Amino acid sequence: MTSTPSRARHRAARRPLTSLDDLASAATGSLAVVGRRSAVVAAAGGMVLSAAMPAAAASSESRADAVPSVDTTALTAPVREALSTSPVVAVPKDVSWDFESPKIEVKENPKPVVVVRRTVTARSATRAPAPVANNPIPQTVNGNAVLEIASRYVGVPYVYGGASPSGFDCSGFTSYVYAQLGISLPRSSSAQRYAGQVISRADAKPGDLIWSPGHVAIYAGGNMQIDAPRPGKTIQFRAIWQSAPVFIRVTG
């Protein structure tokens, strides 16, 4: 067998690349970009760029993305026209203005204002006594007849809630006596307080009622009364002991 010897191929010897070669290659590629930007700035300012541009920049004029030239004269024409037609306002240098303030006259009030303060007090929850009559009505029953019936029960013992001759409390005694004369009185002493007309002590007559909080009696004339005093006591005539008694004339 015949064998053909093959020769090895070798690249041509080249100068080795250094860092300066890389820097020169980068600078060359950037010149095209710098050239295009310089052309745009020159066109916008209306200047003519006379400096020589690299071949890469010149060839960019035929590219589709090349920046067109701008007519600055046409853009500023409306503004120049508006300025030329605007009216001119002239103001003298020595012009001045002033403001006259109105005069205010303060006068003393001839009638001073008087503030009246009223004090409102709360009404009492208890019922106020009725006014004393100047001209009391006459008795509807004979006062002597009231005392004659009441005296029959002297000595009857006090019984709480009692209303019969077997035992009386204060209001049970007065209501029983008046019932013998055909007059019906309320059962409690507080209700008998409003069973007639309030009279003054000077106008009181025997047979009228004497009322004080929690107690009621029959006026016997002078400074005397007849009543059922309290538990352990009996019906009796005794002196008026109440400090502020209310005299009541039963109206029937």
Rank of each mutant, 00 (worst) to 15 (best):
D203K: 13
A64G: 13
P157L: 08
R80H: 15
S212F: 13
A150D: 03
E108Q: 15
A43S: 13
N144I: 12
S50G: 05
R117S: 00
T121K: 15
N109T: 06
P110D: 02
G232R: 05
Y176E: 11
T4I: 02
V33H: 10
Y153Q: 10
P102V: 01
S38K: 06
A44V: 14
V106D: 12
P165E: 07
F237T: 10
L75G: 02
S60R: 15
S124N: 13
Q139G: 06
P136Q: 05
P186I: 06
V67C: 14
E61I: 00
A244W: 12
P186V: 06
T234G: 13
L23C: 10
V88I: 14
Y219C: 05
A64W: 14
D169E: 01
Y178A: 01
V113Y: 13
K103N: 02
D208R: 04
D71S: 07
P78M: 00
S151A: 00
V70R: 00
A130Q: 14
G252T: 07
D208E: 04
G222C: 09
P110Y: 03
S212C: 10
R123Y: 12
P245H: 10
I210N: 11
F237C: 08
P16A: 13
A42V: 12
R249N: 06
P129T: 08
V91T: 09
V116D: 00
P138Q: 15
S200Y: 05
S212N: 15
R118Q: 01
P5D: 12
A228Y: 05
A133D: 04
A51S: 03
S96Y: 08
G221Q: 06
Y176C: 03
T76M: 03
A43C: 11
D22H: 06
S96V: 06
P206N: 05
A228S: 10
I226L: 03
S25Y: 03
F237Y: 04
M1R: 01
D94H: 08
V141E: 00
L49Y: 13
T28I: 00
G214P: 07
R230D: 08
F237P: 08
P129C: 04
V48Q: 00
